[in-house]
């Protein structure tokens, strides 16, 4: 891909990351990975493989017990990190625009200053006409779009997504996958995308980290060099099926151990 410099320092580097919960369950053990700036990486694996835990460690919401997390490109954790949860996680009492405004509001930016950015973020997810709607007046897919707009309004260098489209129907999900890729291509934020769908991970990512459970660990690191935008031609290509089978095989091997 153009603009890809293999020698550039990665945005994020994980070495020997481990996490054990108070109840003795080993969520993660010996995680080594590095993620390049502007990359799109998926973490795929069964429930309980610690992929959400890893995402939370990257976000700084929880601390790892062992190992180090470093930010070679920037030196420190970016001040702005976008986070999208499985549910849209909107404030039900606030209009769509106020939900998107939240990250800026918490930084002390006035509405007057923030308004163009909020409207722009809503525009980018195709919800410019719904700025005044309350979450319950929106469909599940639209709520998720508001959630993405909220995550992107600060123009973060890093976007973390925790099974964001898992609760949506397949059509909505496919549309959001494509829209997410378009946003990513336009803005080039680094994306770490947690999913339990092999197909989704292969379709979206440049790289899939396949994870196994008990303890949570990385089973395989699969590069997908297909160019973007991918669209349905990739989805229907033999190459796509081949990579899905590869991810699937890695998961099977992990489960067998």
């Amino acid at each position: 891909m153009s603009g890809k410099r293999p020698d550039a320092p990665p945005l994020l580097s994980l070495t020997g990351i481990g996490k054990t919960y108070a109840n003795g369950i080993v969520a993660l053990s010996g995680i080594d990975a590095s993620i390049r700036e502007g990359g799109f990486v998926s973490l795929v694996g069964p429930s309980g493989c610690g992929k959400s835990t890893l995402l939370r460690i990257i976000a700084g919401l929880i601390e790892a017990d062992t190992g180090t997390l470093s930010w070679p490109a920037s030196g420190t954790r970016p001040a702005d990190i976008g986070f999208v949860f499985q549910d849209a996680t909107l404030m039900p009492w606030a209009r769509a625009s106020d939900n998107v405004y939240l990250p800026l509001k918490l930084k002390g930016i006035s509405w007057k200053q923030a308004e163009p950015r909020v409207m722009d973020a809503l525009q980018r997810v195709g919800l410019a006409d719904f700025a005044n709607a309350y979450p319950r007046e929106l469909s599940g897919g639209m709520r998720m779009r508001v959630s993405i707009a909220r995550a992107l309004v600060t123009e973060p260098p890093l976007l973390l997504m925790d099974e964001p489209f898992a609760a949506l129907d397949e059509f909505t999900r496919g549309k959001l996958d494509d829209d997410l890729l378009a946003l990513w291509q336009a803005q080039r934020f680094t994306t770490v995308f947690v999913t339990h769908s092999i197909y989704e991970s292969v379709y979206l990512s440049e790289r899939v980290l396949v994870m196994g459970a008990r303890p949570g660990r990385i089973l395989a690191d699969i590069e997908i060099s297909e160019p973007f935008p991918r669209g349905h031609t990739f989805r229907e290509s033999p190459r796509y099926i081949e990579i899905c089978a590869q991810v699937s095989a890695a998961l099977r091997e992990g489960a067998a151990i």
């Binding site: 939370r56 996680t89 509001k105």
Partner: peptide, 22 residues
């Protein structure tokens, strides 16, 4: 909502902001 709490924490919200906004 616990996820909203996490989100507030991620954006560095103060205690006062968590109280009044969430």
């Amino acid at each position: 909502d616990h996820n909203l709490r996490d989100l507030f924490r991620l954006y560095g919200a103060s205690r006062w902001q968590v109280l009044t906004e969430l």
